[in-house]
Amino acid sequence: MDRRSPLVAWLGIAALTLMLIGSIVGLFIVQADAEMGDVQRLMYVHVPAAWTAFLAFFLVFIGSVLYLVQRDQRFDRFAAACAEVGIVFIALTLATGMIWGKPTWGVWWTWDARLTSTALLLAVFVGYLAIRGFTDDPDSRARWSAVVGILGFIQVPIVYLSVVWWRTLHQPPSSPRSVSSEILWTWMLNFVAFLLMFAYLVAQRSRLARVEAELEALEAYDV
């Protein structure tokens, strides 16, 4: 898809618009939590950022499996784009969690199972991107990345279930029945906004990967 494609441009505009609405609703419209106060409003971006990151790593898994089955570089480029954007969202999940943790728990960071497993998830996918820089051969790069992408995804259910498996400071997973409809709708609004932003960023990053692959092929031809 071309960088100047109107669809991608509209996707970006829609993402920014919905993010703006989501931020206004999260910051000013919904009522502050009776116990935690305003800091609870961070949950309206922290939780959707985590969902978006999990989806990104699931798509890395799908792209990696498809590459290993089809040996088509397009799947590798898609997986790499999702991994890079997923790293941004999981880093934001950790950062907003830390900003929430300081006034709530009294510390920026603690070696709690949820926090530690999430940090490990971030490290695994930073490793995924690092591995891609180890070789110039597109096939071996895609093969090794696919293996790491598939193994890395195993960490996602571990992160999700860490609050069930181990005793943690972090609260257990929320469900539509455990939160009010106001909280649920604000989550969903911000989740859709982040999904649109994710789609826009992956479209741009995939296009970049394709142009880089064309450049690589031209350089290899010249040599």
Binding site: R3, G12, M19, S23, G26, L27, D38, V39, R41, L42, V45, H46, A49, V85, V88, A91, L92, A95, T96, I99, W100, K102, P103, M197, Y200, L201, Q204, R205, R207, L208, V211, E212, L215
Partner: peptide
Amino acid sequence: MEYTVAGYGLIWLSLIVYAWRTRRRLAEAE
């Protein structure tokens, strides 16, 4: 409220900087 604003600000700043940087890399590669 300052922690909350810092969190939202970080989200906005990070996503906008990443999108802008990706667009710039793409323009250079093209």
